[in-house]
């Protein structure tokens, strides 16, 4: 069984159908870049996977948990599938330390001392050990995103979802966040990431999914797909983002 199994999902917002029958399997350890035009349904797909949006039709199973079941245990699901957004991830009223410790204590029910030890370790991994006691507004945007990644990883998820986590950053801060993503990738984490960083997709992702108008329009090995797009839509999308 694959880690993520999506079977013909449909998602509507009112009359607008945003996902029009998406099916997808992601294996453990796979790194999938999701690309596509604005409004093609990339974020919605990720949000359906961790249960932030409910689908009207179809089935999603993540790590054995049936997300689309009416009585799905979404809290358990979200421990298994972490997500980092474009912005506003960190809790502004808590220090870096407390940001990471919060869910460790509330959700994983760890003692403060254990939670703090893990928080130290994870924040160290993203290279921000010296910012442990800082508040989010004392960090740069890039540093905030690195803490957000550390905070999700501390929950030991089976899958990480990243939705354009570098899009709101100043260009000079993008690199440090992508480097953290690369190191997460090297450790074998299963990842799905929506990104506009085509070089990153080519070099780090195993597989690229091109979304177009609510459907998966192309799906295949990253280098192949990006080097030789099969459809006119992907060709025009690539030429638009690369130039």
């Amino acid at each position: 069984m694959s880690l993520v199994e999506i079977d013909n999902i449909h998602k509507r917002f009112g009359p607008v159908e945003v996902l029009k029958g998406v099916s997808l399997k992601v294996e453990k350890g796979e790194i999938v870049a999701v690309i596509g035009r604005s409004g093609s349904g990339k974020s919605t797909l990720l949000r359906c996977i961790n249960g932030l949006e409910r689908v009207q039709d179809g089935r999603i199973i993540v790590d054995g948990i049936e997300v689309t079941a009416p009585n799905a245990d979404l809290n358990l699901l979200r421990q298994r599938a972490g997500m980092v957004f474009q912005s506003y991830n960190l809790f502004p009223h808590l220090t870096v330390e407390r940001n990471v410790m919060l869910a460790l204590k509330l959700v994983r029910k760890l003692e403060s001392s254990d939670a703090r030890r893990i928080a130290h370790e994870m924040v160290g991994k993203v290279g921000l050990a010296e910012k442990f006691l800082a508040y989010p507004d004392e960090l740069s945007g890039g540093q905030q995103q690195r803490v957000a990644i550390a905070r999700s990883l501390a929950m030991q998820p089976a899958l990480m979802l990243f939705d354009e986590i570098t899009s709101a950053l100043d260009p000079e801060l993008v690199g440090e966040v992508l480097r953290v993503l690369e190191s997460v990738a090297r450790e074998g984490m299963t990842m799905m990431l929506v990104t506009h960083e085509m070089n990153f997709a080519k070099n780090v992702a195993h597989r690229v999914i091109f979304m177009h108008e609510g459907r998966i329009h192309e799906d295949g090995p990253a280098r192949e797909i990006l080097a030789e797009p099969r459809t006119a839509e992907l060709r025009s999308f690539l030429s638009a983002v690369l130039h």
């Binding site: 961790n50 932030l52 979404l74 809290n75 358990l76 979200r78 421990q79 972490g82 997500m83 980092v84 957004f85 912005s87 506003y88 991830n89 960190l90 809790f91 919060l102 869910a103 509330l106 959700v107 957000a148 905070r151 999700s152 929950m155």
Partner: peptide, 12 residues
């Protein structure tokens, strides 16, 4: 987004 950030960590 703050609600969602909490939800994404498994908070009730």
């Amino acid at each position: 987004r703050q609600w969602e950030a909490g939800a994404s960590l498994g908070l009730t």
